[in-house]
Simulated scan of single mutants.
Amino acid sequence: MKQVKIAGQQVPAMGIGTWHMGERPAQRETEIAAIQAGISAGARVVDTAEMYGSGKSENLVGEALKPFKREDIFLISKVLPENASQRRMEASLDASLQRLRTDYLDLYLYHWRGSVPLSETVAELQRLQTTGKIRSWGVSNFDIADLQELWALPGGDQAVANEDLYHLGSRGLDYAVLPWQRDHDLPLIAYSPIAQGDSWGHHLTTTPIVQQIAQAHHATIYQVLLAWVVRHPQVLAIPQTSSVAHMEQNIAAADLTLSATELAALDQQFPAPTSKQPLDIL
């Protein structure tokens, strides 16, 4: 299974996203079973946020992780921009830890930029790391200019990851962000790596070349899309599903390697940008 090194730890390149999970009581047991199936299939990274369902996702994740050893899980959550200040961040983190039933996060991400000065947010993230409540910190929804600004700040280069939207139909990161992150040894966490099942009109699942590659590998279309995302050595994908079967297929996609010919065919159908693109955000 492909691995990514993040915050000094080697983890499988396929993790578990939890956006939209925990919001429907009738789905709770199904969603818990899916998360647990993903971990049992080899996933270590579980990604959530205080924003997701206003804490309901964190609560669900906390329950789902109970059967597992805490040290076997790489747990990520995120702080909202309005809570990313020196005055509010620690209380926000404490609430996340309580919902997650843990006393530390492996990685705490600044969810997206708001009105709090970035220098203040970075200083508070650095301070919280010294308390042991977070083992490392990073950012999310940062574009190239944001990353460059971050790196110029005291302690800014201590960020261990950036989480952005990235999939075959949204390749803006290929122009500047991914090359910059590779040069600075900053892993990418790719959210919505299968374009939310084509709900945004990218037609990835109905494109003949994607279907042909899936058939050649006896894989699902979604596995091909995920394998494409993690073709880079320092990219971690966090697909979300409430289905046990789909979860197991997602995790197995980390073992699928696309050939140079297949990657070239996908590039032809979904070309990388030749100029700077606006950062895609959901």
Rank of each mutant, 00 (worst) to 15 (best):
K2N: 10
V4T: 00
K5I: 15
A7H: 02
Q9A: 08
P12A: 03
G15V: 02
I16W: 05
I16G: 01
A26I: 01
T30L: 05
A33C: 00
A34G: 01
I35G: 02
A37L: 10
A37C: 10
S40Y: 07
S40V: 14
G42R: 02
R44D: 03
V45G: 05
M51G: 10
G53F: 09
S57C: 10
E58L: 08
L60G: 08
L60R: 11
G62P: 07
K66E: 15
K66F: 12
F68W: 06
K69F: 12
E71L: 15
D72F: 10
F74L: 05
I76T: 11
I76W: 12
S77W: 14
S77Y: 10
K78D: 11
P81V: 06
A84G: 13
Q86C: 13
R87Q: 15
M89R: 04
S96M: 02
T102G: 07
T102N: 05
D103L: 02
Y104N: 04
L105W: 02
Y108F: 12
Y108C: 06
Y110L: 14
W112D: 01
L118G: 05
E120I: 07
T121R: 09
A123N: 06
A123K: 12
R127A: 07
L128A: 01
Q129V: 03
G132C: 05
G132S: 06
S140V: 06
N141S: 12
D157F: 08
V160Y: 03
N162W: 05
D164W: 09
Y166P: 13
S170Y: 09
R171Y: 02
L178I: 11
W180S: 09
Q181L: 12
Q181F: 03
R182D: 13
R182N: 08
D183S: 14
D185T: 11
D185M: 13
L186E: 01
A190N: 09
Q196D: 09
Q196P: 04
D198A: 03
D198M: 04
S199I: 12
G201S: 07
H202K: 13
H203L: 10
T206D: 09
T206W: 06
P208I: 09
I209W: 03
Q211L: 12
A214R: 08
V224T: 01
V224E: 00
V229T: 08
V229C: 01
R231D: 02
P233W: 00
Q234W: 00
T241R: 01
T241W: 00
S242N: 06
A245S: 08
A253H: 05
D255V: 04
T257F: 09
L258A: 05
T261C: 09
T261S: 15
A264M: 11
L266P: 05
L266I: 11
D267C: 15
Q269S: 14
F270W: 14
F270Y: 10
P271Q: 14
S275I: 11
L279V: 05
I281D: 14
L282N: 13
